[in-house]
Amino acid sequence: MATGGRRGAAAAPLLVAVAALLLGAAGHLYPGEVCPGMDIRNNLTRLHELENCSVIEGHLQILLMFKTRPEDFRDLSFPKLIMITDYLLLFRVYGLESLKDLFPNLTVIRGSRLFFNYALVIFEMVHLKELGLYNLMNITRGSVRIEKNNELCYLATIDWSRILDSVEDNYIVLNKDDNEECGDICPGTAKGKTNCPATVINGQFVERCWTHSHCQKVCPTICKSHGCTAEGLCCHSECLGNCSQPDDPTKCVACRNFYLDGRCVETCPPPYYHFQDWRCVNFSFCQDLHHKCKNSRRQGCHQYVIHNNKCIPECPSGYTMNSSNLLCTPCLGPCPKVCHLLEGEKTIDSVTSAQELRGCTVINGSLIINIRGGNNLAAELEANLGLIEEISGYLKIRRSYALVSLSFFRKLRLIRGETLEIGNYSFYALDNQNLRQLWDWSKHNLTITQGKLFFHYNPKLCLSEIHKMEEVSGTKGRQERNDIALKTNGDQASCENELLKFSYIRTSFDKI
Rank of each mutant, 00 (worst) to 15 (best):
S77V: 08
G142L: 01
H59M: 10
P197W: 10
G95A: 11
L88E: 00
I56L: 12
S237K: 05
N202K: 13
E33N: 11
I122N: 01
K224A: 07
A119P: 00
E180R: 08
W160A: 01
D169I: 06
P330V: 12
T189R: 12
V55W: 08
F275Y: 06
S317P: 03
S296F: 13
V173P: 07
S112K: 13
G142R: 01
F258V: 09
E57F: 03
N105F: 05
R162P: 11
F66N: 01
I109F: 01
Y30I: 02
F275R: 02
H302R: 07
N135V: 01
G333C: 10
F91R: 05
R263C: 03
T250G: 12
K224N: 07
S98Y: 06
V55M: 13
K67E: 12
I172P: 02
K217G: 03
N43A: 07
H302G: 14
D86I: 01
F116Q: 03
S284A: 06
K217R: 14
A119M: 00
C53G: 00
L106G: 00
D261R: 09
R162V: 09
D178C: 07
N295C: 04
H212L: 12
I122D: 00
Y319V: 03
K100P: 02
W160I: 03
C293L: 04
W160K: 02
D247W: 15
R69A: 12
T85K: 12
F115Q: 03
G183D: 13
L332E: 15
E124L: 02
L89F: 11
D184C: 12
C301F: 09
C311R: 01
L120A: 05
T199F: 13
N43V: 05
L102V: 14
D184F: 04
Q245R: 06
Y319W: 12
Y319F: 08
N105Q: 06
L240H: 03
H307K: 06
G318T: 03
H59F: 03
L240W: 01
M65Y: 14
G318W: 14
R46M: 14
L289A: 11
E207V: 05
E231P: 14
Q216G: 02
G333F: 11
Q245A: 14
V281K: 04
E151M: 04
S112E: 15
P330F: 12
C215F: 07
L233E: 15
R256W: 05
Q299L: 11
N179D: 05
I56T: 01
C328K: 01
R279L: 04
T107M: 07
P79D: 09
C182V: 04
S112W: 14
I82R: 10
N282Q: 02
S166Y: 09
K176G: 11
V218A: 11
L47E: 01
P334W: 14
C255M: 01
M65E: 10
D101K: 04
N195Q: 13
C255R: 00
N135M: 13
Q204C: 11
N322R: 13
S323C: 07
L120D: 00
H302Y: 12
S284P: 02
L152K: 01
L155K: 02
N308H: 08
G32L: 07
F103R: 02
N295R: 12
P31S: 09
N295E: 07
G203K: 11
S244M: 14
F115G: 00
S296G: 06
T211Q: 02
G188N: 05
G227L: 03
Y30V: 03
S244L: 13
R41P: 01
L60F: 02
L120G: 00
N295W: 12
L76A: 14
G58N: 00
S324T: 08
I84V: 04
K251N: 06
G58C: 01
K292C: 12
M125D: 07
M321E: 02
N52I: 04
E266V: 10
L120C: 06
V126A: 15
G300Y: 11
G300V: 12
P316T: 03
P31I: 02
S112G: 05
G192H: 08
E180T: 04
G32W: 06
R145S: 08
I62T: 00
L60S: 00
P70V: 14
P104I: 01
Y134D: 11
S284R: 07
V121K: 00
G183M: 07
L106R: 01
C293F: 02
V55D: 00
S284D: 15
A156E: 06
H212A: 14
I201L: 13
K191Q: 04
V108N: 11
K148I: 01
K100L: 10
S143D: 14
R113P: 04
V34E: 13
R297C: 09
D86L: 00
V305P: 04
T229P: 07
L89S: 02
Q204A: 06
T68V: 06
R69E: 05
N52R: 06
P316D: 10
N117A: 09
L128Q: 03
N179M: 05
C186Y: 02
S225Q: 13
T329M: 11
N257I: 01
S324W: 11
H59P: 12
G32H: 04
L152Q: 03
T107V: 06
Y94K: 09
L174T: 14
V305H: 09
H290D: 08
F78V: 06
N138M: 14
L131Y: 00
P36A: 09
V121C: 13
C186N: 02
K148H: 04
A230F: 15
V55T: 06
I306A: 02
